[in-house]
């Protein structure tokens, strides 16, 4: 019912987004040629670097599939994605949610994972007809299963209510985890796809008096800056 009624919210977020759209439009329209050329140059260089990585990636992916066949495990599938734009943020400082401009009409469903260019952002919690609400991973009611990219140690990353901090739960003092480790989604909850970067460990405090170590990580995704996000399809059998 909430999803049906929630559609009334969309126009408000559209209207409050107008100043931002005007600013974007202004920036796109009034730019010097030199500026554009410089940006073009930078993008070309970046593209070249990414293409080189991709060349290697194709070979590696093929090898990965072959090895997985040898092990009789299932193939990794390419995830289908949909690009979406942010139209609003939660007015309440205690809940970290954002509104995006895709909804039921575009096939968005509850529980869908949302990424930006740098890492995992969160999941869709409310779908309206042409907008939806996304709960960010730093919301204090959110937790997701992750693993350390270096050695595969699994943990649960919990939101703290602070936009640039996650906390790992129940990591024992002897676990091999240190500052600088990259945490990727482990896909164990069945909610998020496997292998997307989530956070980087900032600080590990091991106090022998405590039963668990305190591990603080900062999200990879730019939760307070990204305006373009990606919706990943593929875990549709979650709750709908």
């Amino acid at each position: 019912m909430r999803a049906q009624l929630g559609t009334v919210a969309t126009p408000f977020y559209w209207v409050t987004n107008i100043p931002q759209r005007l600013e974007d439009w202004g920036q796109d329209t009034f730019r010097s040629r030199a500026n554009l050329q410089a940006e073009n140059e930078a993008l070309r260089t970046e593209l070249l670097i990414h293409q080189r990585r991709l060349q290697q990636m194709a070979a590696l992916a093929a090898e990965n599939v072959r090895l997985r066949r040898l092990l009789n495990s299932s193939d990794m599938l390419q995830d289908k994605v949909l690009i979406s734009e942010l139209i609003g943020i939660s007015p309440d400082p205690l809940t970290h949610t954002v509104m995006i401009d895709r909804g039921r009409r575009d096939g968005v469903y509850r529980g869908q994972a949302v990424l930006d260019a740098f890492g995992l952002m969160g999941q869709v919690v409310e779908v309206h007809s042409n907008s939806s609400r996304v709960l960010l991973i730093t919301d204090s009611s959110h937790a997701l299963p992750v693993q350390v990219n270096r050695n595969g140690v699994r943990a649960i990353a919990e939101g703290t209510g602070n936009l640039n901090q996650l906390r790992l739960r129940h990591v024992s003092n002897t676990t091999d985890i240190r500052a600088g480790d990259v945490l990727v989604s482990s896909g164990l909850g069945g909610r998020y796809p496997v292998g997307y970067p989530v956070a980087q460990v900032e600080e590990v405090v091991r106090d022998p008096g405590q039963s668990f170590a305190t591990v603080i990580a900062s999200p990879k995704a730019r939760l307070d800056r990204s305006r373009h996000v990606l919706l990943v399809f593929g875990n549709e059998d979650g709750d709908n």
């Binding site: 919210a9 609003g88 943020i89 007015p91 400082p93 307070d224």
Partner: peptide, 17 residues
């Protein structure tokens, strides 16, 4: 009034809306 209630503000300012 409803528009002002959802107008996007920086995180710290949102406490005092």
């Amino acid at each position: 009034a409803l528009l002002l209630a959802v107008y996007p503000l920086p995180l710290d300012w949102r406490w005092g809306r």
